[in-house]
């Protein structure tokens, strides 16, 4: 339960309400390794601790990169950190995206809003090991064009010939020339073989629910659709009981699950 001290190396805004923190450990000799999809508990001194997914490259784990949205006391305290400030880190915790089992398959990554942050490490992995995978598609939906994360990288990915990038927004005004409509609409048009695909999905729960429906409609088995779940977490290590979801603790049995495991619970209210 003792956080490791890290220092803010760089911090910058991604959008109006989202930001990225780059952190370096005070004791670099202890190292840091994580798998794509895992999260850390970030402690803002005197304010509190929150689970935040790691959004950097698993092959270059330092500086540790977290992208998140300012939604309340702790995340706002994190947003206000300046270069050189100290922050407590516990982790990495939780399960990861199935980048290894997905070898030999097409990979479809569907992200909604801030959900692109925990998926970016998986994307880094599959793009670095491009020859291990079949088709790669990234489908990304946000509320409006200005809510889009990692816009420079999105441009680079769109420019690649070895992956398919679909981007859409729920509503657009002004100069947006791209797709408008929910992200699920991109699924029917994306190039992948549903019988040999691993899908990784992260976003608001409603968005994930309809995304899974659309993927299964195309023939992707639910056991090969992976989602990342969110619940209240205090400890991150399966001891405090807050993140219970059906017969599991999301912090240690998740956050990444094959969807078929969750189906019976997701169909009930208030689980």
């Amino acid at each position: 339960m003792t956080p490791r001290p890290f220092r803010v190396k760089r911090t910058y805004a991604e959008t109006d309400d989202t930001f990225t923190l780059e952190l370096e450990p005070e004791r670099p000799e202890e190292g840091f390794a994580f798998a794509a999809g895992q999260f850390n508990m970030l402690y803002a001194y005197g304010v509190g601790e929150v689970p935040i997914s790691i959004s950097g490259d698993p092959l270059k784990p330092l500086p540790l990169i977290h992208t998140t949205r300012s939604v309340g006391l702790v995340t706002e305290a994190l947003r206000r950190l300046k270069k050189g400030d100290l922050i407590g880190v516990r982790g990495p915790f939780g399960t990861s995206w199935p980048v290894i089992p997905a070898r030999g398959s097409d990979v479809v990554i569907v992200a909604g809003g801030i959900g692109l942050a925990p998926l970016r490490p998986a994307l880094y992995h599959v793009l670095r090991n491009r020859e291990d995978y079949g088709q790669i598609a990234l489908l990304y939906g946000t509320r409006t064009p200005s809510d889009m994360l990692f816009t420079k990288e999105l441009e680079q990915w769109r420019g690649r010939f070895d992956m398919d990038v679909g981007i859409t927004v729920d509503r657009a005004t002004g100069s947006w020339r791209g797709n408008v409509g929910v992200v699920t609409r991109l699924i029917s048009r994306a190039p992948f073989d549903p019988h040999n695909t691993v899908a990784m999905v992260c976003g608001p729960e409603i968005m994930m629910r309809y995304t899974v429906m659309e993927l299964t409609k195309r023939g992707v088995p639910e056991s090969r659709v992976f989602v990342s779940m969110e619940r209240n977490m205090k400890c991150g290590i399966g001891l405090c009981g807050h993140c219970q979801f059906g017969p599991s603790f999301i912090c240690k049995d998740g956050p990444v699950y094959p969807h078929d495991v969750l189906t019976p619970w997701l169909r009930r209210w208030e689980i």
């Binding site: 005197g46 304010v47 509190g48 601790e49 205090k234 400890c235 001891l239 405090c240 009981g241 807050h242």
Partner: peptide, 13 residues
């Protein structure tokens, strides 16, 4: 066994 965590600071922080 469920627990939560409360954060406290001294007055001068």
């Amino acid at each position: 066994f469920c627990s939560t965590v409360e954060d406290w600071t001294s007055l001068d922080g």
